[in-house]
Each structure stands twice: as structure tokens, then as C-alpha cells.
């Protein structure tokens, strides 16, 4: 399945944080992300789904190299990145050019003191100093047109734009270095419904035109269903279910995925409501339960689930980490 179109290949990727427990409490480890493996092809979208604290944002930060992985291996566009080997500046610049990120909050992600032109040109200025200023401006203006803004927006400042337009600018900036991978960290959840669809359309359009690979992080399952080719469901830092979007949405095997799907409100008042009532809340990542992390809230949990955590295993259509997966 791996070919030269594979842009991200992650094997057992982990990211742990040390947290000190007050003055005398010593240190404990939070496993924000533990052994996630996946790969992403050019032109396709992998959605990462889960609730807060499930490790999806940590995954985004590791893939965009904001943070190094604690363990595991990450191959980005042919370059190997892991915690132990350091890259030269040149390699970093090259990698930066291949993976970029768009953040959730369009009001926080643009520097309020820089004009749109400067915001767009900064990545080129830093990473490709040989490009002449006129050429840079040319590129920025072309990019503005590409994301559906007008050339005269070039000299304006972020506060003059609405949330949707700002998100377009954020996408434009991310594309300035012509990356092959775009990490989208909840790109539409801060936007109004009518604006949300504009941005989703833009993303779809850009993906088709530029053959981009998207790592799409979201908690909104209806958006994910619309965008994703592959889906990875996470719970408390671990991947619990992963497979093609159709397989995961149509025949969820992990109880958590099923609960998540049934808890998501559907805009159809005539739909029969058969909701799975999940008891309790997400356990603290500082003190995760023994065995399967989901066992305290799971209605199918048995003794075995409380002792050892299940590994991901092939269940026909896709892979699931559960001893007692559901079959329809």
C-alpha cells in the first residue's frame, strides 16, 4: 500500500509530558499521545476525531514539528524525524515547506500588527531569502486570488476582516511555501454555519487543485463525514478505531465510536433517537484507568478490559482496539 505518494508515515508515534506535582510531589508523566500509527497519501484526507484531551491537538503539533515526538518514528515527505536525531537547518527549512498548519481560531492566528501582505510573505522571506521582494509580492497576490480574496486586500490588516475571510488568509499563508501536507486543526469550528460551508468548499477545491494531503482534526462528526477519506478515532491519547470513513461511520466497531456517533446531534427532527447513554466523563490523563482507557464508561466492559489494554487488530473492514468489538 505504501508508495511514493505516501506523505506521512507515522509508526508508534508518542508524545509524553512531564508534569510536576507541586513542590514535593515529584513528577508524573502524561501520555498525551501513545503509539499512534498511520499514513497519509497525497490528495486524501485523514480525519482525527475525539473529545478534548484525546491527543488530537498533540498529534497536530508533533506532525508540524512544533514539538518533537518522545518515541516512535515519523517520516514526512521522505524525511525521517524522531526525537533522537536532530536535523540540520537546511533539512528543517525543507520540511517546513512540506507541512503547514491552519489553526482553529482565525482571530488569534494572524498577527494583528502585520498587514495581510506581510503575513503572507513572511514564510517566503524566512525560508527562501533568495526570492526577490517583487516576486514575493507577486506570489502573495496570486495566493490571495486562489483563496477567493481580492488583490486590494493585500495592504489591509487582519482586524478589517470577518472570521471567514481571516480563515482564508490563514489558509493562504499555510500554502505560501507550496506544502504537500496541510494540518487543519479544527479549521471551521470557530466559524458560523454559513461561513463554515464556504471554508469547507475552499478546502475541497484546493485539495483537488493542488493534490494536497489533509490531516483534518475535528470534533464535529458531520464535518468529518463530509471531508474525510480515512478516519482515526482517539480516546485519551490512544487510537481506538481507524479505517476508511465509510467503514467507521457505517459500521463502528468500538463502543466509544458508537457512543460518539450516537451523541452527535443530527439536524433531522424526524430521526428516531436511539441514544447510547454514556456514563461519567473523560478520566484525567494524569491518572488513566488500568486496562482499556474507556472501560469505566463502557457498557460492554468485562474483567479483561480492566486489566490490560487491547491492541489494535484487524476486524475485516478496519482496525479496532477492543476485546469485544460490536458487530452489526
Amino acid at each position: 500500500m505504501l508508495n511514493n505518494n505516501t506523505l506521512i508515515e507515522a509508526t508508534d508515534l508518542s508524545r509524553h509530558y512531564e508534569v510536576s506535582n507541586g513542590l514535593f510531589g515529584g513528577k508524573s508523566t502524561v501520555k498525551a499521545l501513545s503509539s499512534a500509527s498511520f499514513h497519509l497519501q497525497a490528495g486524501s484526507t485523514l480525519a482525527v476525531v475525539g473529545e478534548s484531551g484525546c491527543g488530537k491537538s498533540t498529534l497536530a503539533r508533533v506532525v508540524t514539528m512544533i514539538e518533537p515526538p518522545t518515541a516512535g518514528q515519523l517520516i514526512l515527505d521522505g524525511h525521517r524525524i524522531s526525537g533522537d536525531i536532530s536535523l540540520t537547518d537546511e533539512q528543517r527549512a525543507e520540511l517546513r515547506a512540506s507541512v503547514q498548519i491552519v489553526f482553529q481560531d482565525p482571530f488569534g492566528s494572524l498577527n494583528p500588527r502585520q498587514s495581510i501582505g506581510r503575513i503572507l510573505e513572511e514564510p517566503v522571506l524566512i525560508n527562501r531569502p533568495s526570492v526577490s521582494p517583487t516576486q514575493r509580492e507577486q506570489q502573495a497576490r496570486e495566493m490571495l486570488a486562489m483563496v477567493g480574496l481580492r488583490p486590494e486586500h493585500y495592504d489591509r490588516y487582519p482586524h478589517m476582516f470577518s472570521g471567514g475571510q481571516r480563515q482564508r488568509i490563514a489558509v493562504a499563508r499555510a500554502l505560501m511555501l507550496e506544502p504537500r501536507i496541510l494540518v487543519l486543526d479544527e479549521p471551521v469550528s470557530a466559524l458560523d454555519l454559513s461561513i463554515q460551508s464556504q471554508i469547507l468548499n475552499l478546502l475541497v477545491e484546493l485539495q483537488e487543485r493542488l493534490n494536497l494531503a489533509y490531516l483534518f482534526i475535528s470534533h464535529d462528526l458531520s464535518v468529518v463525514r463530509h471531508m474525510a477519506d480515512e478516519v482515526m478515532v482517539m480516546y485519551l491519547g490512544r487510537v481506538v478505531e481507524s479505517g476508511s470513513a465509510a467503514a467507521v461511520f457505517d459500521s463502528p466497531k468500538h463502543p466509544y465510536t458508537q457512543a460518539l456517533l450516537s451523541a452527535t446531534p443530527v439536524a433531522d427532527p424526524t430521526r428516531e433517537q436511539t441514544r447510547i447513554r454514556l456514563q461519567g466523563e473523560l478520566p484525567s490523563p494524569l491518572n488513566p484507568p488500568a486496562g482499556c482507557a474507556f472501560n469505566p464508561r463502557c457498557w460492554r466492559a468485562q474483567d479483561r478490559c480492566r486489566v490490560t489494554a487491547p491492541e489494535l487488530s484487524d476486524e475485516g473492514t478496519h482496525i479496532v482496539a477492543c476485546y469485544f468489538p460490536l458487530h452489526d
Binding site: 471567514g164 463554515q196 460551508s197 464556504q198 477545491e205 458531520s222 463525514r225 443530527v266 439536524a267
Partner: peptide, 23 residues
């Protein structure tokens, strides 16, 4: 009408029918 049509779950194609402009 447009708001409901723009819901991703009601989408029939990859391009969503969206409302142009802003409030």
C-alpha cells in the same frame, strides 16, 4: 433554507451549497 442546505450532513456532493458573504 440556505442555512439548512449548507449543513455538511445534508450534502449531496463534495461542494456544499454555501451562503456567500457575511452577516
Amino acid at each position: 433554507h440556505a442555512l439548512l442546505a449548507a449543513l455538511p450532513e445534508r450534502a449531496t456532493s463534495r461542494q456544499l451549497p454555501s451562503i456567500p458573504g457575511v452577516v
